[in-house]
Design a protein around this nucleic acid. Structure first.
Lengths: 204, 204
DNA sequence: TTTACCTTTGACTAATTGGTTAAACAAAAC
DNA sequence: GTTTTGTTTAACCAATTAGTCAAAGGTAAA
């Protein structure tokens, strides 16, 4: 029964820790709160993860792998580039709708400890150059307007992520703090971002 | 001499507090660190501002008023709408280049305490509806493509702000952590964002 | 010079919080 | 059934940190 019980507790901790860390960040999180959320004794957290820092690193890695969804299929499919980009945008916003706290969490921690970030990226084996190369080739072939492909990627990411990261501010300013109204707006975003981006890169 | 001395110390505190709060956020900031940065005794902070919360609120208000630059001139000038938007984007990115830590600070705190945010916005007398109305009219006149004006505003803000808020991440992923390269990229952004936005709203 | 007021400080306090430990408990191994 | 091993807990510890306070320092008015 050791294995089962251990896995069970460890999983409870990871779930609770993600829920708290993602909302409050490293600095704002208390170990006691994670323990309460997991329904266990605080000492158990240290028994399984030694320190707050170690537990945080586990969560950060976990979360980070979630925001890089499976874009490889998209990347290596033989659909036309316009379609590929559309699918990327859709999948990304879908992901954010399911995990609305990820953007602000990532932005928070990315600014707090950039060195740690670099190590995580390496560990994840992420290779943005593949995407950039793909885009560059399409531009050479004349299927996309010529531009710095990094501009394009950052535009797409910004348009997708910003409305989630800045939600409280935007919701108050532009939606009279109407939660449902803003949620509807986010649902529509998949289409409008696609349109906005494609409109700007199509060769006329 | 009272007035001068008082103003002097108070200003030193505000400067130091902004510098620390903006980089580390409310949770990550220590009163002692602000005192050190200001070159004074920690008790003086409480003498002038009573509590950490009060000091933070003073700074948040200060910072918040900085990220709403004087757009009224722009708004009520009689230049064509396309030009107005171009100026807005330029001014905004200029502001962010001078204060690169503001975006991550605002996003951090806006998510930490949205209720407080609402009160600050009211105090600032900010009225986004003016901009939205302006855009809507231009769309009716057929000078801009018809769309939800809030989409347009959020697109502009996201495209401008995101590269600053996510800098550490983007710099590693797309620029091999080359600081100068990323800075150059940001300088160019004024033009590319303008092009990107205008390209998508012009009526063909 | 003295008085009164404001500013500044060092030393202190109370509360929070990450982390430890010894003992209780449970489950498998013998 | 007893021993051994791994799991969980309550109580505790040490460090940090926001906030207080009484006393000292300085300045202007009387």
């Amino acid at each position: 029964m050791n294995e089962i019980k251990k896995d069970n507790t460890e999983e409870k901790i990871l779930t609770a820790a993600q829920s708290v860390f993602v909302k409050k960040g490293m600095d704002g999180t208390r170990m006691q709160e994670i323990a309460n959320e997991a329904g266990i004794n605080k000492a158990l957290l240290h028994y399984y993860f030694r320190s707050k820092q170690k537990l945080f690193e586990a969560i950060f890695n976990k979360v980070f792998s979630q925001i890089f969804p499976d874009i490889k299929n998209m990347l290596y499919s033989d659909k036309p580039i316009i379609e590929k980009l559309g699918i990327f945008i859709e999948k990304y916003i879908d992901l954010l709708m399911k995990n609305p706290f990820l953007p602000s969490f990532i932005l928070k921690e990315v600014n707090r400890d950039p060195e740690f970030l670099a190590s995580v990226i390496k560990k994840q084996g992420i290779n943005p150059d593949d995407i950039l190369n793909l885009l560059e080739k399409e531009m050479e072939y004349g299927r996309l307007k010529k531009m710095d492909p990094r501009e394009l990627m950052i535009n797409i990411l910004g348009l997708s992520i910003f409305p989630f990261a800045a939600r409280p501010l935007l919701q108050i300013m532009f939606f009279n703090n109407d939660k449902k109204g803003y949620s509807n707006f986010l649902v529509n975003r998949k289409e409008t971002v696609k349109e906005f981006v494609l409109n700007s890169i199509l060769v006329k």
